[in-house]
Structure formats: structure tokens, C-alpha cells
């Protein structure tokens, strides 16, 4: 077998196939990019609708403010706050917040706060906790998160704002103290961050 005339064929074939692969992926990505962005936005809007107090009439996504806070991951992580207004008056806000690590990983939560600082509702955006135990924080599995609705920074007082094993007021999910602690502390932090940054979103952007 004469090896010489064949030696360039293999690399050439790989090159052509690579170019083909790249081109196909580029085309698919081009066709879907706009739709994928829309799908992600729809999901965000759905999550916001679930946690914000009802009756707002502003464009929550457009008025979202990104900020950093030294108390939130030492100011290294950005935080998004979504203000909800009715006729220009702030009636609440939502914060997309990352908790301290739970049992497996940090949890991402969407926290809805009423204007005067009461927690309205919470949704779990992303969690990797143990199925059947920690994963039960998700409202799809249990109503554990509902107990925080209506609570605020002063209710319960700060020293009681934790899970029962830490001397706090809130029962932990059975078998999932670590997850419950991470979520409870994140909710308290969310309320504190809202209080600290309320003024920045108090009036509508001009």
C-alpha cells in the first residue's frame, strides 16, 4: 500500500468534518439564540410573578437594578433587585439571591418582599440538595417555605431569625437541617439587603 498519497487525506477529512460541525452548530445557535433568550426571560418573569405582591404595573425586568454589597459575598457577587410598582409607587421587590452552601451546593432563591419589608413569597430557582430530603425546600415538594411569608427583619427578632437547632424560631425540614439553615439565613440576608438598598429603587427610573 502506498502511504504517501493517503497521508494528507485523513487530516483533511477531519478538518472538513470539524468545519461542518462548527458551521452546523453556529447555524442552530443562530436560529435559536433569540428564542432561547426569550425562553429564559419568560421563566424569569414567571418566577417574578410568583413571588412579587400582585397588582404591579411596571416593567419589572427593565427596571431591575444590579448592585453589590459588602455583606453579600464580600461585594464580589452582583445581586439583582426587581422593583414592583403600581402607578409609580413601590409596592415590593424581588431579589435573586444565592445562599451559603447547603448540603451539596449553594441554593439560588427568588425572594419577594413587600414594600414595608415583609417577606411575600419565595421560589427556589436552582438547588442541588438531596432528593427526598433537602430538595423538599422546593415548593413543588413541600410547603415549608410558606412559613416565612409575612415575616420581616423584626419578626422574629434577629436573635430568633434562624432554624430551631441554632436557637431560632423556625423548624428545619426533617432530615435537612443544613439546607434549612442555608435557606433561612439567606432569607434573612435578603430582607436585610432589601432594607439596605430600598432607597436605590424607591423612585422609578427617569
Amino acid at each position: 500500500m502506498n502511504a504517501r498519497p493517503r497521508s494528507w487525506r485523513a487530516p483533511l477529512a477531519v478538518l472538513i468534518v470539524s468545519l461542518f460541525s462548527g458551521a452546523v452548530l453556529k447555524v442552530v445557535d443562530g436560529y435559536t439564540a433569540a428564542r432561547a433568550g426569550m425562553a429564559a426571560e419568560q421563566h424569569l418573569l414567571r418566577d417574578l410573578r410568583q413571588v412579587l405582591p400582585p397588582g404591579y404595573d411596571n416593567d419589572v425586568l427593565k427596571e431591575a437594578v444590579q448592585f453589590t454589597d459588602p455583606d453579600y459575598f464580600g461585594g464580589r457577587e452582583k445581586l439583582a433587585i426587581y422593583p414592583a410598582r403600581r402607578a409609580g409607587v413601590l409596592i415590593g421587590a424581588a431579589l435573586a439571591i444565592t445562599s451559603a452552601p447547603g448540603y451539596n451546593a449553594p441554593l439560588r432563591l427568588m425572594i419577594g418582599v413587600e414594600a414595608e419589608g415583609r417577606l411575600h413569597a419565595v421560589r427556589v430557582l436552582e438547588q442541588h440538595e438531596t432528593a427526598g430530603l433537602g430538595a423538599n425546600v422546593d415548593p413543588r415538594h413541600s410547603d415549608w417555605l410558606a412559613r416565612f411569608s409575612g415575616r420581616s427583619l423584626s419578626d422574629p427578632p434577629p436573635e430568633r431569625w434562624s432554624v430551631r437547632p441554632d436557637g431560632g424560631e423556625f423548624d428545619a425540614l426533617s432530615g435537612a437541617t443544613i439546607t434549612s439553615r442555608a435557606v433561612t439565613n439567606a432569607l434573612h440576608q435578603g430582607l436585610a439587603l432589601y432594607a439596605a438598598h430600598r432607597d436605590e429603587i424607591a423612585s422609578p427610573p427617569r
Binding site: 493517503r6 485523513a10 477529512a13 442552530v28 445557535d29 435559536t32 432561547a36
Partner: peptide
């Protein structure tokens, strides 16, 4: 495709297919 390049081309085709379904899944079933 010459025989000696088939394995790598196969992997490339497969990776492309996996890439496409991943993108489509993200778009239509987030």
C-alpha cells in the same frame, strides 16, 4: 473519509449532534 480518520470524525459527528440537542433543549424546554 479514510478509515484512519473515521473514529475521530465519528466522535465529531456525535459531539455535533449532542451540541444541537442541548441547544434545542435549552431553547424549547428550559
Amino acid at each position: 473519509i479514510p478509515p484512519e480518520a473515521r473514529a475521530i470524525c465519528r466522535a465529531l459527528f456525535l459531539a455535533t449532534g449532542a451540541g444541537i440537542v442541548t441547544v434545542l433543549l435549552k431553547t424549547f424546554r428550559l
